[in-house]
């Protein structure tokens, strides 16, 4: 996994609550057997006038002009600012894959759906939960062209006005994200503990180990 570095970037304000994973990446793109290539289809139904299909060339598709991602001033933005319950709905990891493939590295919201939140950390994306009032203040404060700096090591966000906003993150997740560690390799270092658990469990629930 890619290690997370401090980011200074433009911020896309997506002012909607309960953005679901069907909106982030519609179902027709889930037929892919790859992990990459979802970026052009991120928010497909909100972003384009026509219907997206897998493997389409998106460079000439008609854009919905009023959708914020299509505003050229936000080109290259790596931070998404949005509202509560972001990523609700299905468990599709294609949602963080699409956000990542588009170029986002940080998502700021008052709350996230649990599965989506987990999936972000597996893909080098940092979801940041801030109080609703702070999220509100960011929506108000940030003008087009304004940048935020997100420092995971210090767990701080710096705004253009000089405000420093602290955020919480699980220590374990922070460590893995900063170092880009492979979760499976880490868990397999504990193989003896897993085997010991299985031995004990087989005594308590022998029917599960009958094969």
């Amino acid at each position: 996994m890619r290690a997370f570095k401090t980011i200074t970037s433009l911020v896309v304000p997506l002012d909607r609550a309960n953005i679901d994973t069907d909106a982030i990446i519609p179902k027709q793109f889930l037929k892919s057997i790859r992990r990459t290539g979802f970026g052009p289809f991120l928010f497909d139904e909100w972003r384009y006038e026509d219907r997206g299909e897998p493997d389409m060339d998106c460079s000439n598709r008609p854009l919905k002009k009023d959708f914020v991602l299509n505003d050229p001033q936000y080109k290259g933005a790596q931070i998404l600012l949005t509202r509560e319950n972001f990523g609700c709905g299905s468990s599709r990891e294609h949602a963080p894959w699409a956000l990542d493939d588009y170029g986002f590295r940080v998502i700021i919201a008052p709350s996230f759906a649990d599965i989506f939140y987990n999936n972000c950390f597996k893909n080098g994306l940092l979801p940041i939960v801030l109080d609703e009032e702070i999220v509100d203040s960011l929506f108000n404060e940030l003008d087009k062209g304004d940048q935020l700096t997100v420092d995971l090591e210090q767990q701080q966000i710096a705004t253009p006005s000089g405000r420093v906003i602290a955020f919480d993150v699980d220590e374990n997740r922070k460590f893995r994200l900063l170092n880009g560690l492979d979760d499976i390799a880490l868990t397999l270092q504990q193989a003896e503990k897993i085997k010991a658990y299985e031995e004990q469990r087989a005594k308590r629930a022998p029917w599960l180990f009958a094969d």
């Binding site: 963080p96 987990n118 999936n119 893909n123 374990n172 979760d183 499976i184 868990t187 897993i194 299985e198």
Partner: peptide, 18 residues
């Protein structure tokens, strides 16, 4: 509970999840 694809792989490989 539902999981993402990275976790599907994690369970395949380790029978466990963090």
């Amino acid at each position: 509970f539902g999981i993402g694809t990275s976790e599907v792989e994690h369970v395949l490989a380790t029978q466990c999840l963090v």
